[in-house]
Design a protein around this nucleic acid. Sequence first.
DNA 1: CTGTTAGCGCTTTCAG
DNA 2: CTGAAAGCGCTAACAG
Lengths: 348, 348
Amino acid sequence: MRRNATMADVARGAGVSITTVSHVLNGTRHVSEETVKRVYAAIERTGYQPNSIARALAGARTHSLGLAISGISNPYFMDVIAAIESEAAEHGYTLLLGDTREEPHKELQMVQELVRRRVDGLMLSPSPGAEEHAIPFLAAQSIPVVLVDRFLPVAVDQVGPDNEEPTAQLVEHLAAVGHKRIGFVAGLQGLSTTEERIRGYRDGMERSSLPVDELLIAYGASRHEPARTATHRLLDLADPPTALVAGNNAMTIGVMHALRDRGLYVPEDIALVAFDDFEWSELFRPHLTVVAQPTSAIGAQAVQLLLARLDEPERPPHLVRLRPTFLHRESCGCADTPARATASVAIA
Amino acid sequence: MRRNATMADVARGAGVSITTVSHVLNGTRHVSEETVKRVYAAIERTGYQPNSIARALAGARTHSLGLAISGISNPYFMDVIAAIESEAAEHGYTLLLGDTREEPHKELQMVQELVRRRVDGLMLSPSPGAEEHAIPFLAAQSIPVVLVDRFLPVAVDQVGPDNEEPTAQLVEHLAAVGHKRIGFVAGLQGLSTTEERIRGYRDGMERSSLPVDELLIAYGASRHEPARTATHRLLDLADPPTALVAGNNAMTIGVMHALRDRGLYVPEDIALVAFDDFEWSELFRPHLTVVAQPTSAIGAQAVQLLLARLDEPERPPHLVRLRPTFLHRESCGCADTPARATASVAIA
DNA sequence: CTGTTAGCGCTTTCAG
DNA sequence: CTGAAAGCGCTAACAG
C-alpha cells in the first residue's frame, strides 16, 4: 500500500505550483485552459484524491454534520436518520453518526467526540439527563446545534412532532365512540415527548368531559417489554380500560403482545389506537388507527435549520413543530369499520 | 462565538510547551505529576477540546470508519448499521454514514467522499454495478475495505449471511408438507444475495424431487411494490403456486399485500414463508415462518474484520458467512400449527 | 495568469 | 523530565 498522492505530487506532475492545483480544484480563481488540462491529467495519472482532513484544517469548515441519536434501530429514528442523511448529502455534507442509547453519559461522550471532530453543526435527540450533561457542554462550545424529536427549554433550534394535539385527537376519537375508561401507555419519563403526549391524553379526556383517572396512565418506558408489563397492569385494574392509547411504535408492539397474552381481541374486546404508524399497519387485522409522524420532514427540517444557522449564526432560535397525520383505520372499533365477520379471516 | 481553545492556549495557561501538553493528553511519555496537574487545570479553564482534524493530519489515522450502505431505512440494514456503530464506538472509532441507494454512481461518489475524508477503513454493501465503479476505484486506493451483506469475486474481506442453504431449507419445508408448486419472489437482479437465494430455491426443489418451473420465479426487485406486482403475476399463472417463498423483508410485505388484494388466506389458501424476520412476526395471524438473519453478528463482524486488517494489512482476505436461524411458526401451514378456529380471531 | 509563503493545530523526532 | 522545530496536506493572502 503506497502513500496517497498529494497535491504536491499533482503539481509536480503538471509542472505547476500547488497553489494552481488548489485553484483549479476549487474553481477559486481563473486558470488557463491549457494549465487546467495538464492539472487534470496529472490528477488522473496519480489517482489523486483531495485530503479533506487537510482541507478542513486549513479552511474553516469540515463540511460534516454530527448526529447523536438515542436509538438507531428504532424505526422512527431510522426514518429520521435516512431523511437527515439524504438532506445532508444533498447539500454536500457528510454525516457522522452516533448512538447515545438514552444514556446521558454516553450522550455527552458522543457529543464531545463530534465537537472534537469539528463537525460544522450537530443534531441531537436529547435523552433524559441531557440538560445536566450534553446541553451545558454544548452551550460552552461555539457550535450550532439543533435538537431533534424532543424539545428543551434552551435557546437552540429544535424540530419535532406536535405531540399534544394528535394524542388528544386519538383520545377524543375513542371517547366519541363511547369509551369512558381510556388507558394510556406512556413513554420514558423525562422526555418532553412523553410529557406532551400525556398532556394530550389529559386534554383529550377533559375535552370529552371524561374524568382523568391517574390509574389509567401506565408507563412503558418507550420500549416494547416495559409496555407489555404496563398494559398488564392496566388490564388488572378493578375497573379496567375498554380502550387503549399506545404512546409510540415500540410500545404498541408491547401492548399488542399483552393483549395476545390475555386472548383479548381488538377492537371487539378492547379498542386500540397508537402514536406512530407502521409499514405493516394495513396488513393487520384490524388495521391500526394511528397518528403518523412526518419523519422525513422532521429529518429534512433538522438539517435545514442547521444550514440556515451556519449561514446566519445570529438568527433567533427556531422551534419547528410538525403535525402528524391522523390515519383512521379499524382498531378504534368505529361503526364505519368493516364488520368482524369479514375482518377476522384474512391474514391482512 | 469565540475561537476554540487550542493546545497552544493550554500550554500557555499551564506554563509548559505544546509538546508537553500533547504528551500528557496522549500519555505518550512520562510527565511530572505536578505538570500534569497544571495542564489539566489549564484544559479545564480554557474548555479545551482536542482537534481531531489536526490530530489526524499530523498522525496517520483518523479513527473513523466509513459505511456506504444501500438503503438506510431498510430494517435489515438498520440493524446492521446499529451493530456496526456499536462495535465501532466500542473500539473508539466514529462512523461516517452514507446511503448509496443501490445506485452505482452515487455509490462511487460516497466511497470517494469517504476516501477523501481518510477513513481508516470502509464498509460497503455493494450494489449491482459496484464491480464497474466503486470496486475498481477502491482497488486503486490503499484502503481497507469490507463488503457487507453481498459477496463479490474480489480479494477483500467480506461478511454476509448464508443464503443458499436457508432458502433451500424453506423450500424443503414447504415440500415436506406436500406442496409441489412453490413460487419464489426473488430480489434485485445483480445482487449476489439474490442469486444465492435463487440457487437455494432450486436446490430445495431438486432435493425434494420437485421440477423447477422457471415461471414460478418472479422478480420483486427486493422492494415492496415490485414484489406485490410479482406476486400477482405468480397468482395469475395457469397453474399457480400453492406456496410462496418471499426473498426478503420488504418483499414479504409486498407479497402479503398481494394476497390481501385477492382475499387469499394464509396458510389455508396458500402457504407463505420468508427470508428475514420481523419484530411483529408473532403478532400476526398466522405467525410468520421465516429464516432470521444474524444482523448484529454481521455488523459486529464487519468492523472486526476491518480492525483486524488495520492491525495486519497483509493477511489474506476473509470471507465470513453467518448462518440465519430457521424460525418455525405457522404461516407454512404445518399440521402442528394452531388450527384456524383459534388462530383466526385474535389480533395477535 | 501563476507562484511564494505563512499558517491551520497537532504529533514526533531530536536535543537537552 | 521538558522543549524546539519540522512537518502532515491544504487554503489564502500577498506578490508579481
